[in-house]
Simulated scan of single mutants.
Amino acid sequence: MAILSARNIHKRFGPLEVLKGVDLDIEKGEIVSIVGPSGSGKSTLLHILGTLDQADGGSVSISGVPISNRSQVLRPAPWWKRLINLLVDVPLSFALAEGLSRLLHRSGADLEPGSPQRALLGGGVIVAYFLLFESFTGRTPAKWLTGTKVIAGNTPVRPSFSACCLRTAARLLPFGLLESLSFVASRPVGWHDALPDTVVTDSKLPYLPRGTQSLEGKALADFRNQRIGFVFQFHHLLPEFTALENACVPAWIQGKGKAATRQRATELLTLLGLGHRLEHKPGELSGGEQQRVAIARALINNPDIVFADEPTGNLDSANARDLHELFFKLRKELGQTFLIVTHNEELAQLSDRVVSMKDGRVIS
Rank of each mutant, 00 (worst) to 15 (best):
I3M: 12
K11C: 13
E17A: 15
D23G: 04
L24P: 00
E27R: 13
K28G: 08
V32G: 05
V35D: 00
S40C: 10
K42D: 05
L46Y: 03
L49N: 03
L49P: 00
G50T: 06
L52G: 00
G64S: 05
V65C: 07
S68T: 14
R70W: 04
P76F: 05
W80I: 05
V90G: 01
P91W: 06
S93N: 01
L96K: 02
G99S: 13
R102Y: 09
L104D: 04
H105K: 12
D110F: 07
G114M: 11
P116D: 07
R118Q: 12
G122L: 05
F130N: 02
L132D: 02
P141E: 13
T148Y: 05
T148I: 10
A152H: 08
R158S: 14
F161G: 05
S162I: 14
L166E: 01
L166C: 09
A169G: 09
L172K: 02
L172R: 01
L173G: 04
F175G: 08
G176H: 11
A185W: 02
P188Q: 10
V189I: 15
W191P: 00
L195Q: 15
V199M: 11
V200S: 14
Y207D: 08
L208G: 01
L208D: 12
P209K: 11
T212P: 00
E216C: 04
G217E: 07
A219W: 00
A219Y: 00
F223A: 03
G229E: 03
V231Q: 06
Q233I: 09
H236C: 07
L237E: 11
L238A: 12
E240C: 02
T242W: 10
L244F: 08
N246M: 11
A247K: 02
A247P: 00
C248W: 00
Q254N: 06
Q263G: 03
L269Q: 03
G273E: 11
K281R: 15
G283M: 09
A294P: 04
A296F: 10
P303G: 06
I305T: 05
F307N: 01
P311L: 12
G313W: 09
A318D: 07
R321D: 10
L326N: 05
K332D: 15
L334N: 08
F338A: 03
L339Y: 04
V341N: 03
T342Q: 07
N344V: 09
E346D: 15
L350Y: 03
D352C: 07
R353P: 02
V354F: 01
M357Y: 09
K358M: 13
V362C: 12
